[in-house]
């Protein structure tokens, strides 16, 4: 990736405002994410981190501001969500694999059925990605036969198989047993090293420190602090962030 590409803004959020029935959830969010950048969003429960992520691919409607993704305004009424979502991969807390499909069918649904790409080529890509997360042998298993960590790795492969420009991770390790957290985080770290643009919501502080280019700290629907991981963890500027980090020191 050239330096020029690295500085290209992929996702621009201006003055985003989101409310549920009159209750403001996110207010005046301004953020730009560059190509290849890994942004980790931290904050207390219910502060709106996940909602922010879900606004990026239109799972939540926003009431104000604008989101520009890859040069397209996503607040435009005529935005082609189906097309846009194919370029924004998302991984959820509860994996949400389709239980009626095998691992391979889950992974191929996107490229073959939604994107209508060549089956042989998709299959090859899927096999490669499955090998990379160490789950190639489980390609004919049903999700129910897999552990949480395995399911989540499959879910990541499923999103990657659509060749997204950006990946959104919504607390992907929150539902996992502690010993399975690592295998999923390792996959994400590998992705980050390869230059994937990522927006990550997590509660794993060590991981945030290791993977992030920038930390966004959100509290009560507002961005409190944007800093590099080093700055944020060693020397947070806002009182709220200090309080938040103190909780994790036990």
């Amino acid at each position: 990736m050239t330096i020029e590409e690295k500085h290209q803004v992929l996702l621009q959020i201006n003055g985003l405002h989101k409310e549920y029935d009159g209750t403001t959830v996110l207010d005046d969010i301004n953020l730009s994410i560059h190509k290849g950048e890994v942004v980790v969003i931290l904050g207390p429960s219910g502060c709106g981190k996940s909602t922010l992520l879900r606004c990026m691919n239109g799972l939540e409607k926003i009431q104000g501001g604008e989101i520009v993704f890859s040069g397209k305004d996503l607040t435009d009424k005529n935005v082609d969500w189906q097309n846009t979502r194919q370029q924004i991969g998302m991984v959820f807390q509860n994996y949400d694999l389709f239980p009626h499909m095998t691992v391979m069918e889950n992974v191929l649904l996107g490229p073959v059925k939604v994107q209508k790409r060549d089956k042989a080529e998709s299959l090859e890509q899927a096999e490669q990605l499955l090998k990379r997360v160490g789950l190639f042998e489980r390609k004919d298993a049903y999700p129910r036969q897999l552990s949480g960590g395995q399911k989540q790795r499959i879910a990541i492969v499923r999103a990657l198989c659509m060749n997204p420009q950006i990946m959104l991770f919504d607390e992907v390790t929150a539902a996992l047993d502690p010993e399975m957290v690592r295998e999923v985080l390792d996959v994400m770290l590998g992705l980050a090293k390869q230059g994937m643009t990522m927006m990550i919501v997590t509660h794993e502080m060590g991981f945030a420190k290791a993977v992030a280019d920038r930390i966004i700290f959100i509290d009560a629907g507002k961005i409190c602090e944007i800093a590099t991981p080093d700055e944020f963890f060693s020397n947070p500027t806002t009182e709220r962030a200090k309080q938040f980090l103190n909780i994790f020191q036990y």
Partner: peptide, 19 residues
């Protein structure tokens, strides 16, 4: 969640129903 996962992949409604 399953419906959202399918939607987040950009699945058209018809396929969402059928698949």
């Amino acid at each position: 969640g399953k419906i959202e996962a399918a939607k987040a992949m950009g699945t058209p409604n018809f396929q969402l129903i059928i698949k």
